[in-house]
Amino acid sequence: MLFVAGLFAVLLNYPLLAAFDHAGRVAGVPVLYLYVLLTWLLLIGLTGWLVRSFNN
């Protein structure tokens, strides 16, 4: 869990964030917005999955 928190803290910070900080757009949505939202979603999914597997 701590590892996941740490990993995503790095993923969602500079300098990695800067890699997506450009004007391009994917399916009409700016890359940066898409990256942040999807990474965030992945984090939530991963947390949920980990919590579930710890339960069992």
């Binding site: 869990m1 996941v4 928190a5 995503f8 984090l43 939530i44 947390t47 980990l50």
Partner: peptide, 12 residues
Amino acid sequence: LGPGLLAPAWWL
């Protein structure tokens, strides 16, 4: 986003 990043560590 901050609370979201902290959430996995809540268990601790």
